[in-house]
Write a protein that binds this DNA or RNA. Structure first.
Lengths: 198, 198, 198, 198
DNA sequence: AGGTAATCGAGACGGTACGTCCAGTCTTTGT
DNA sequence: ACAAAGACTGGACGTACCGTCTCGATTACCT
């Protein structure tokens, strides 16, 4: 009983070079101008090797994003005990990421890839945004006695709003982040400053 | 002053056929598998005619979405006086649209197009989602004394959350819509059922 | 009743450029190192255009040879009244052609192409060698009262022997040409110098 | 004195399997569609093993043809004392070989290989056709007082004519073989039936 | 009525990229 | 040390589209 694998071992080095080349191409040209030829050339790899690792353009982009080659979406939400401050800080950190043009391009590429492929979309959800969602939801539940569905809805409202702004090229201004925080914590009737902290 | 132009007049019929063919292709194959050749053939038009009307793939998709050939996002929010019911109804209508596979595909295609092109993104925002945003924000302001920024943030949280769910292939269940409504109206501390109506 | 052909007319100029590039590549690299990519690039044409004219490598080579782009096999046999001299002259002319390295490469390429494709072989026969065969056979019949089959066999013995020598890289020396002439005219029993002329 | 080599001895069995696989591939697909990958797989060998034995495609084909794995060209000419009958019999045997589709394919493949590679051509000549040539020439000299050059020319006329017919896909009919025999024995002026036998 | 000009379907053009296949080399494990 | 297995770079394959450029054939306006 041996699971020994014959033949040359697949080069992890090459795999990483491919992902790095992909990240650079994505940042430079966007999703639909990606060229496997160019990526392979930039990575010093044969095209076949690229296809051996990733069967399609979307899978390549997915892996690129998943492996943290450009989507450093933090999935840890600060917890100082003051929910308003923590939430606002997390949004600010997220916004700072999106302000980097290269990161923004990468996330938009992920969006395009997810829009085109069910598979990529699910992987994107499960391995990238779900983690942030969970962290957010947990922090929210710690701050107020809401059920899980409600916490998730709030978390998705936050993430969704940020991605939407990115998509339509509207900058996430500090005022917008403030308002978003207030809305999620107090709803539209809350006054913003009077919400108790956890 | 006459703006009469010499030569044969451009056929509006053909233009509509092109947009319809584009809509069908988008729904069937998604954004990045669009083929101008196929669209022209399906519309019974020459390729040059397509390019005469729309100089690029993104322009074509933008026009397609903008002219209501595929993004029937309602921009009128019901106003029965009960904000919770109105908001929930609007979300339900939106969710019903997204439940249609063809419509979902079209919106995802628009998302991809917006992700790839600044121009399309801005036109998408200005002519499609901004209208819904405004309608939503106005209805929210009528229900509670919030400033404009806050109302806009709330509206974008709603739209963003819905588009995010669509993107990551998570169905917008009635419970989710309820929770989303509650969150935007009352924040995470609201009890949901006790929020006063406008 | 119109046989009007719609669309842009196919460029004869491009077609000739493709054939010329093919001829050059054949002479330089031989048949199986032909690259359609290189030919297209050298001709300043798109690959699709090459394939539009010629569906395969062998068809391309066939057309190249057929259109006289390198196979100037003379199909006119001199007729001075002296059959021995005429035959020997024709063989000498043929041998001179084969002595050109470029022409030799081209003919070897035709041989390879004919070996690989039935279609090319038949076209090669019908449009290239059959003409020479007929001319030779006719000249032979004018010189001696032989039936057609016999004349054709003699003609093919001549052509076959020359191509065979080319194939196996044996030079066609004057002595060889003399002997070949003698053999075909008198058989192995003839003395060579005593055969009457027509 | 020992020529023992260290390590595992190279398997003659494998070598033969490679040649047999090559022969089959040649017969099935022709020379330029040969694939070392396919040959190795069919022979149950690794690609490296193929390259260890034969450094190139042409060397492989040459060895295949030379070792009698596909070119069973008889190099013994019958000698009943009657040259016409002997020659005709030899041609008939040759023609029977060529009538076999698989054998014909193999010989055409050899032709293609020889056309493409000087090395293969010379080996093809020296080890395959030269033997037949010599046997033919010797038999001819035994039948008539011709010098060597003349006998060789006659032999090459016979072989060349047969290969030419094969190449251009013209069947070698009995009438053709008769005429070819007559031509070589008597030239175009001989009456065919009156040529004395040796 | 007869030019003149823009548009139409059609489709060829030079290019770029695709995804596959193969050549020839290299590396790993098994014998 | 050789063998099988198979990954590696590199490059050609034949196809599909891109966006541009002719074509002949319609329309429409403008003398």
């Amino acid at each position: 009983m041996s699971d020994s694998r014959r033949g040359r071992t697949r080069s992890e080095t090459t795999r990483r070079a491919i992902l790095e080349a992909t990240r650079d191409e994505l940042a430079a040209n966007g999703y639909d101008k990606l060229s496997i030829d160019r990526i392979a050339a930039a990575a010093g790899a044969g095209k076949q090797t690229v296809y051996r690792w990733y069967p399609s353009k979307s899978a390549l982009v997915a892996e690129c994003v998943l492996d943290g080659y450009g989507f450093p979406l933090t999935n840890s939400v600060p917890d100082t005990g003051v929910i308003r401050r923590d939430l606002r800080d997390w949004l600010g950190t997220f916004a700072d990421l999106l302000a980097h043009p290269q990161t923004a391009a990468l996330i938009r590429a992920s969006t395009a890839a997810a829009a085109e492929s069910d598979d990529v979309a699910v992987r994107f959800y499960k391995h990238v945004t779900a983690a942030a969602e969970d962290a957010l939801a947990e922090r929210l539940r710690a701050a107020a006695p809401v059920d899980d569905t409600r916490a998730v809805a709030a978390a998705e409202a936050l993430i969704g709003a940020m991605l939407y702004r990115l998509l339509v090229r509207q900058p996430a201004t500090p005022q917008f982040l403030d308002s978003l925080t207030d809305t999620v914590l107090s709803g539209i009737q809350g006054t913003g400053g009077t919400v108790p902290t956890s």
